[in-house]
Design a protein around this nucleic acid. Structure first.
Lengths: 356, 356
DNA sequence: CTGAAAGCGCTTACAG
DNA sequence: CTGAAAGCGCTTACAG
């Protein structure tokens, strides 16, 4: 039996001249039933070794690829994971996405990025629509979306397993991956203190992100442990944007009794402070030390480079994919066993230590 | 007839208690055939107005969402578009992705991001596998992938329509969206000349990107038009990375006869030059003017902010999605009618003009 | 260990 | 303008 496997190049025109190989073709050529091919493809047990070999050989010969849609339609799995983000162009989202993408690839899953714009009054309907029409195997989400009850409700209403990255609370609601923000912020604070700084300005982040609270707690913890006073006048609330770093930096640096160090709790705000320092012709780090948080790509694009806390974003995303693709995750009665805390790292660079 | 539409919240446990509404349910309740429901859903003609209304009402009542997999399996459309990128975490990719994502949303399409790592020896097999198993409706790709013959061959072998963003050549091979890099670079050069600069350093980009050649051509064009000499000693070849900006910037700025302005042909390299200028305590823009290219988010995170060329990346991506979702695109015998050139914009900021 | 039958939820092609 | 039948390419549930 000769099987003609013809692929016609069609260029721009999509009029299909493509012969698509199906499971039946493979079965016929291998002399087994489609069900047996299915078993081999899906790595199920109970197939005699010689048949398995035979099937695999034909699969290779025919360059067979199972149709993902057919598979999804008849089974309960789509091999599709969703990544929900409210700010897809941010460096944070990009890092998380990349980590997820790589792990998905390894697991033969694909990633669908779904931006959620909560300023759009129809966002919940749209999300429900997407989840209803595409049957994703699971969803990964980051702050602040993972702390939004309405978002979680929509996902739960669609009966979808999800994993939160750096969630704020409700530990029992799903599996999650996080990092100890408080300990990290305490470490950064101790780093500044160890350099001799006593008067340290602090820029809080967006109060909607739980990380803001934790990072502040870490700062307070370290200051108190070092018996240093915390001056409320130089503890300001920002929103994680460069703009707020600039505005609050201006406030801090134009005061007569300005701090010798500023701990901005993300790199964007730290960059804003750095810009203001440059404008004021302050030498960084000699006249002003600046600490950031996140290890965003931009933290190395500054001069001097920013001392920061490396958040293992890609690793967190990979861990989230691992949970979602774990066959036991769906059935788990609770999230115990699906909670991971990954390590952060203090990156000492030029913005706190000269020539570092 | 009472239809009980029950949705059971399942939280972590994915054991489905979800009643899924199908086209049959809608048909039964509306008193028509599934085919008629299908016609209404897909906006086909030839449905009596009252039946249409009736169907739409039931769709709303039942909160019906067509199953994307069933639809894809039986028709030739998946409503899935692919975005191929070799550097998913770059700002460029993020901007393109965001533009594509938004337009996809408007058109009820979804975007699948597929990173291609050409350093992986199996990349072509993997890509072919993805394209074979998922039947995407089309693919969007950016430099340098869109200039890689092997990549295009794999896509063409899968008989998939694709649109290139800023391709280098082979205009007839597919539809494309681009920007006039040469004109933009000429405009930036004229801007520097108009400020009185005569000795202008130039940093070329990665020779693998065709944009590098075009931007250099624009520089040459404007210099010649202004009767200014081009000194090969200060025309250096980089690779679009911050690192190369730093290295080449060091070379340019430590020379005795250093230029008064540097045109780095992307923002990352420009940022590198800016960092070196800071290190050398050169006042920017007074002692050294710096021009970038791209209007990357980082161009505004620097101090001073970078004068640059705004590349309409999101708009280009949206235009690419428009082409791919145009029913005529697939059938087009050639790409005429599917070529668009979008406008760039010179953004004058502090790195060339004080207080701009 | 293996396979025949039925079905996933839509659309296509056809008939009227 | 409308619908009954067949089929897309797999997997599930069942039988042996």
């Amino acid at each position: 039996m000769l099987f003609v496997h013809c692929r016609v190049r069609a260029g721009l025109s999509g009029v299909s001249g493509l012969t698509v190989v199906t499971i039946k073709d493979v079965a016929a050529r291998a002399g087994v039933s489609p069900k047996t091919v299915s078993r081999v493809i899906n790595g199920e047990a109970h197939v005699r070794a010689d048949k398995r070999e035979q099937v695999l050989r034909v699969v290779r010969e025919l360059d067979y690829r199972p149709n993902a849609f057919a598979r999804s339609l008849s089974s309960s799995r789509s091999y599709l994971l969703g990544f929900l983000t409210d700010d897809p162009s941010s460096g944070y989202a990009a890092d998380v996405q990349l980590g997820a993408l790589k792990r998905c690839r390894e697991r033969s899953y694909h990633l669908l990025v779904e931006p959620i714009d909560r300023a759009d009054p129809h966002w919940a309907r749209e999300l429900a629509g997407t989840l209803g029409t595409l049957r994703l195997d699971g969803i990964m989400l980051t702050p602040p979306l993972c702390d939004d009850r309405k978002v979680l409700e929509v996902i739960e209403a669609a009966d979808l397993p999800y994993v939160r990255i750096s969630p704020s609370g409700e530990e029992d609601r799903s599996g999650y991956v996080r990092m100890d923000d408080q300990a990290a912020a305490a470490e950064m604070t101790r780093h500044l203190i160890s350099l001799g700084h006593k008067r340290i300005g602090f820029l809080k982040g967006d109060p909607a992100h739980s990380a803001s609270r934790k990072r502040f707690a870490g700062f307070v913890e370290a200051m108190i442990a070092a018996h240093l006073p915390i001056d409320p006048a130089i503890v300001l609330e920002g929103d994680f944007s460069v703009r707020s770093g600039v505005e609050l930096g201006e406030t801090l640096l134009s005061a007569t009794d300005r701090p010798t160090a500023v701990f901005a709790t993300n790199d964007d705000m730290a960059l804003g402070v750095l810009m203001v320092a440059m404008k004021h012709h302050l030498n960084v780090p000699d006249q002003l030390a600046i600490g950031g948080f996140d290890d965003a790509p931009t933290s190395r694009l500054a001069w001097p480079q920013l001392t920061t806390i490396h958040q293992p974003k890609a690793a967190m995303a990979a861990a989230a994919v691992d949970m979602l693709t774990d066959p036991y995750y769906r059935q788990a009665e609770n999230s115990i066993g699906f909670r991971r805390s990954l390590d952060y790292q203090l990156k000492v660079r030029g913005s706190t230590v000269p020539d570092a």
